[in-house]
Amino acid sequence: MIELYLFLVFMIVAAIIATEIKDLLAAVISLGAVGFSVAIMFILVQAPDLAIVQIVVEVLTIVIFVAVIFRTTHIDETIGKKLAGSHIFSIVTFSFFALLFIIAIINALHEIPAFGNATMRVASEYIRLGLPGAGGANLVADVILDFRALDTLGEATVLFTSVIGVAALIRSVGRTK
């Protein structure tokens, strides 16, 4: 699967550009490149439902980002400035903990099955019961809407809570001091 590695390299480069570039609009476009690469990788690992949702969500994310930048400024003034002491401290601390994290994750990755050999302990039961038990041909839809419908209820709760938060924050008319 050489194309997966190529897309991952592309995503890492685009992510570094997104965090380091001075123009915020360009950063958002780089973020969109990462997101659409994620959608293509979902297709390559046989997850078409995820690819559809990822494309829709990615377009919405970029539209929201561009709307915010359009109303404010698109220059990141903090890029060219001299590094303050606290900034250098945070970079050093981050490097230290990132190194610890990578060592821990290399040890942890020995525990999970290698790429391409997923163990299907729970999933084999869902696949067996999917069509007769839940009645849907798409097993992902069976899992989210029948076997684990409570998770989806929680998801809807979080989504509507965030919508209420956005609506409360964005309204321009309100109590003035």
Partner: peptide, 17 residues
Amino acid sequence: DPIPQALVLTAIVIALG
């Protein structure tokens, strides 16, 4: 495996929120 796909489907929408 359909279970990680179902979990990620939930997580993508929450990420947008």
